[in-house]
Amino acid sequence: MELSSIINALSLRVVSGKDNLSNAVTGGYVGDLLSDVMGNGKSGDLWITRQVHQNIVAVASLKDLAGIVLVNNCEPAEDTIQKGVKEGIPIMISEMPGFDVAGKVYNLIKKDHHE
């Protein structure tokens, strides 16, 4: 499903990558360890994390992730936003904890597959 539908459904705040909100989201990955996401994330995954370090942009870009959702209202570092803008990686912020974001995205993707 399109990233923009998830953004609308979860009322996410977009801070970078606004030109790429039509990215296709095919799955999700929850993880706070960059090496874990590098090893196990799949292209098209929406990455749900509380890491705000600028390296998250490099990981998302290398793995062709659909975007990054920061949870618990975590504000990304300024250089993270700048890097996200430069690389066109959508970074979004949610007020919800990671568990709920994952739960909601999971249900949306499942429903999308069934229709």
């Binding site: 929850v30 904890p97 568990f99 739960g103 909601k104 249900n107």
Partner: peptide, 19 residues
């Protein structure tokens, strides 16, 4: 299951997150 799938399955059955 990966954490995403684990959270999704439990959320579907009514478990909610906590802050």
């Amino acid at each position: 299951y990966i954490l995403f799938e684990t959270a999704g399955r439990l959320y579907q059955k009514g478990i909610v997150g906590c802050v």
